[in-house]
Design a protein around this nucleic acid. Structure first.
Lengths: 214, 214, 214, 214
DNA sequence: CATGAATGAGAGTTCATTCAT
DNA sequence: GATGAATGAACTCTCATTCAT
């Protein structure tokens, strides 16, 4: 499922996709540099030409996943659809991200704890590596909050505009994201439902509760 | 080469709760036997008097968590409430389980992969340990499916009885569980909302969507 | 967290000879990887670049010892000496193998039980390691039987040719090998007798009994 | 194969026979106190009521084995048979010891190294245990030399009396013992030959060489 | 860029041994 | 005597990481 180098040279992004794939199966700690390297026909030592260390590699995977996910959401927000329509498309987009690219999606849910415990952040080597990691990790978390805020604020705006009923928009947003993330766990390609159909159910479930009159 | 016998024996369940706590912070692979032992004032070696190995310890944590969660649900199902009332209480019960016992709840969500990849299942030691582990792990998964079925079937029955509108009960149940499990990730004691209040939002969100007329 | 690369690479066979030496003193179970590593100025971890695990290391030692021993015997068998002369040279060759290389010789006698009880054979890791070990171990035992058969058959042929008297050639061969192997236990360099002199006694003892007229 | 306690209480010798049995299969280092205890339906802790530690237990097994073996030899030496007849009976007796009681016999051959490396001898605890162990171990080795001397001297006397030809009696004695000990490795009950038959071959082999005229 | 060889650190696990009961 | 619980020490093995080539 990883994009193998078509011809010869491997580039950073090839490695990230491969890593996400392995991460999905084993989790950060159980994934070895050798595992990742094998997926792109390299040795573990060679990975260090591309990433400073394992923690940075993880960070890069997560950054990539988050960027892609957000990139799909922003056009929707910039459109002039109603909040109701926006939220529908956002849900659909997020669920599809999760079902069509489970590896990166799962990493973003399951490897946060590894990112938090990363030794690169703890072991202050007195140099710049440490700071760079912490800074980028903070940015990642900020960006992740921003991602969540897109949902939260759309609900909030919908309430303000009268499209949605009065709810605790922060918690409902979290409920929604929880439901979507969970899809990454149970969804299997070729199962009873396609990704689109799952998205339909999520849209129906959450828009119905938000637009209910009573 | 041995030393002092501690004041009092530690009990198996004490260890399990302590383990769940550590697991929540570090994840299975990053949690060492020493970490767990330290929480109950034992050495790592001593844990092996109580549990055959680390994998079995995890399995025991998960079994305990699931048993407790299910135990709270069954009385509700046996009552003669309406499906709507039952589901409300079930949601409340589950969310409270998660918020009041985040450690075990989180383990049940995040350590499933560790359970699946457990070496005890993979490495056949030619003895009985291997089979016991696989059997108990299978039972755990069965019981976990059973747990999910309690939600799924209550929704299904509610649809049949006309209390709920027509929905894909399997996917809605999963959405619900995803939302609840996610609570275990973001909920912090002493935050803006109590566990009860979070439960209120979940009840409102999901019962409203199920009982909506349109 | 890594350090200096040593001046020059150590070669696999260097390790095997060193291992045999340590094995001779301590026996398989009492020999640690660290012990072996120390003999070749490596760390225990480094040994794992050369051998999959301790069991494989043992297997390699035994294979090497047996190969060397057999290699010295085969030219003798292919010659056109009389059976009597052949057996004399075989005894001499075997005893000299044992006295000049007590370490490997002792391993072949004393570590067979360790090889039989090797965990690598018992614990099925679900992978290929397990099969490789068992296959190679079986080959070793076959080759060891072949080695014994060289003595057994030479005696048998000598009986058929009338050079030797009628004896139970299988048991006499085993008596001979037992006597030779035992040399590995008691022989010390610089003792009363040289390896050649010990060999002389063995040749005299066994050829005399085989060629006796009564 | 171990003598289990007929009724209830276990005595020292029961444990020794059981230990010899386990030792034969696993070797000293691979044999755990628990293994031995299990054979006599005790826990490992209970063994310490009978033996000071594992090294002493081994020493006791070896002492027992050696005592029994020597006990069978001494009446023969005290008789007024010819040296030739004496040696015949000694060989027969020794081979029968090995074939009929392989466990204790094997221990005496294979666990000497463990006895030599025993930590109880190395770790000077400043107390009496250390000295007792070393003393008894020295006695054991002396007694083992004495055992060997019985064969060596019988050959020597036979040469002096003219019954045997001139040979290096020390080495021939060792060859003989090596052959006999080796029987403990390959002999299996129910095989092609009985213990008596194996003894016959050994007697024939060694007496023939000693009595040969040329 | 890539890699083979090496290593420090640490993890899981085992085990002889002790001691209070 | 017997044992369950505990432990220090040690062992095998793994892994991220480095560096000379």
């Amino acid at each position: 499922m990883a994009r193998k180098p078509a011809d010869q040279s491997v580039n950073r992004e090839d490695i990230l996709w491969a890593a996400a794939e392995v991460l999905r199966h084993n989790g950060y700690d159980a994934t070895t540099m050798k595992d990742i390297a094998a997926q792109v026909d390299l040795t573990a030592a060679s990975l260090y030409h591309h990433f400073k260390n394992k923690d940075f590699l993880l960070l890069n995977v997560l950054e990539l996943g988050l960027d892609l996910t957000i990139a799909k959401l922003e056009p929707i927000l910039k459109s002039d659809l109603t909040y109701s329509e926006k939220l529908e498309q956002m849900i659909r987009s997020h669920v599809m991200s999760v079902t069509s690219n489970t590896a990166v999606g799962a990493a973003m849910v399951f490897e946060i704890r590894a990112l938090l415990n990363a030794k690169t952040a703890t072991k202050n080597d007195g140099g710049v590596t440490n700071h760079e990691f912490i800074d980028r990790r903070n940015s990642f978390f900020d960006r992740r909050d921003y991602f969540e805020s897109l949902f939260r604020n759309t609900i909030k705006s919908g309430i303000a505009s009268g499209e949605f009923r009065q709810v605790d928009h922060a918690v409902v947003a979290k409920a929604m994201l929880g439901a979507h993330n969970w899809v990454g766990i149970w969804y299997k390609d070729g199962g009873r439902l396609t990704g689109e159909q799952v998205a339909d159910v999520m849209v129906d479930t959450f828009l119905t509760t938000l637009k209910a009159t009573h």
